[in-house]
Simulated scan of single mutants.
Amino acid sequence: MLSLTRRSLLLLGALSSAPLLLCGCTDEDGPTEAERKKADADLPLRSRAVADTDRLLAGYDAVLAGPGAAQADRLRALRAEVAEHRTALATGLAGSAAPTGPTAPTGAPSGTPGAQGTPTGPATSVVELAAAERTTAGARLADLTAASPELAKLLAAVSAAGALHAAALGNTTPVTGPPAATPSASPSPSASASAAGSAAPTGPASPTAAPRPAAETAALQSALSAEHAAVYGYGVVGARQPAGPQRAEAQVCYLAHQAGRDAWHRLLLGGGATPAAAAPGYQLPFPVTDPATAKQLAAHIEVQLTGVYAALVAAGSGELRQSAAAALRESALRARQWGAEQSALPGLPAADRAPTSPSPSA
């Protein structure tokens, strides 16, 4: 674990601003023909995601309508987030306005697997609902490769939210994407987050020889810089925690961020780029003087990283996109573990669904 004297301060402002550097200027003449075709190609992906989300909403309604529904307040809060997912996913779909009230159950009996591994009928219990959240989160990952950058970012955020919902409802079975594109395992961020299905990004087993597109390289550099800062940040977190579970947890997270940092370093080298070095000095987003503020710093780090990885999902493709989505989910689960409040779509703040939320002032 790093000591407080190794570097002066943590530059977590870089975590907030890094995604902004990846945002290109808008085309004043509107979308190009290629962009319009890509948007059209997104329609079946959106339709499938909306149908799955409707089944989730119907499941929440069925469970809430049951006699003596347990966890009613939590279920209503989670349902509200799922309804927000539906609204975002239905953008551009004709006749797909968000339901204004309880969703009527449709489809086959609950638990019948669909083509994407999701149930084709609504859940009827909290246990089934948790399982449906998990499998639906995996289905969104299966559509990442074919999606446009903006839709891929949304799908990754919805998938991360599904993993959070499943964990909140007691299902800690790992969320997995397509078998061929799932990143290999690396040190887990924590026992609870690992059980909830998050795997730190490791990238391909061997570096690629061909140079990466400029947008991918820029996004990878931002992710690497963010992980440099996170590694140091968890050194601060651990140094301010007394011996015990919280300090041990900080150590596990520290090792997970080291693994992420090394993974992006390898990918950049494999693409012929010079990986960004750690900054010579870092500035904390707020004073960290005790265990409580150290915990706040850990939560801040992870929330900021969800934005970094949402941007990497949009810029990447293929296995890199899957790895970035796994990293987004990892950070969202760790943020929850450290007590952070997150939006319904991790990494996509409500204002414009782009990672622009500011860091706390120093």
Score class of each variant (00 low, 15 high):
R334W: 01
A276P: 02
A277E: 15
D290T: 01
G318T: 04
R329C: 04
P275Y: 12
L268N: 10
E302N: 11
A326N: 10
Y282E: 13
V288P: 04
A325R: 02
A276Y: 03
H265P: 01
P285F: 09
L312I: 10
P280F: 06
A276M: 10
Q283E: 13
L320V: 05
A326Q: 10
A314I: 04
R336N: 15
S323L: 05
G318N: 00
R321M: 07
V303D: 09
A277V: 04
H300E: 15
I301P: 05
S317V: 01
T274C: 01
L312W: 03
R266N: 09
P280S: 09
G316F: 05
A324Y: 01
P275L: 13
A298N: 07
A292Y: 02
I301T: 11
T293R: 12
S323E: 06
V288L: 11
E302L: 09
S317K: 09
G272D: 11
Q304T: 14
A279H: 06
Q296S: 13
A294K: 07
P291Y: 07
Y282S: 13
V313Q: 01
P287D: 09
P291T: 08
G270P: 05
T289R: 15
A276R: 02
Y309Q: 08
D290A: 04
G307S: 01
A273V: 00
D290L: 00
K295Q: 15
E302G: 08
G270N: 06
A326R: 09
Q337E: 15
G270C: 08
A273W: 02
L297M: 15
A315N: 12
V313G: 00
G281S: 15
V313R: 08
T274K: 06
K295V: 04
A327E: 06
V288G: 10
A332D: 07
T293N: 11
G271T: 03
A298F: 00
T289A: 14
L320M: 03
L312R: 09
P285K: 04
L333P: 02
A276L: 04
P275M: 13
Y282H: 07
Q283G: 12
Y282R: 12
A279S: 15
Y309E: 07
Q322N: 09
V313P: 00
G272H: 06
K295H: 12
S331P: 02
A277F: 05
A277H: 10
L320R: 00
A314M: 13
Y282C: 09
Q337F: 08
R334N: 12
P275E: 10
P275G: 13
L333M: 14
L284M: 08
A299I: 05
Q296Y: 08
G318E: 01
A277Y: 07
R336D: 15
L328V: 03
S323D: 14
A325L: 03
S331R: 13
P280R: 07
G271R: 03
G318F: 08
R266E: 11
A277P: 03
G316E: 10
S323Q: 10
T274P: 04
Q304K: 15
G270L: 05
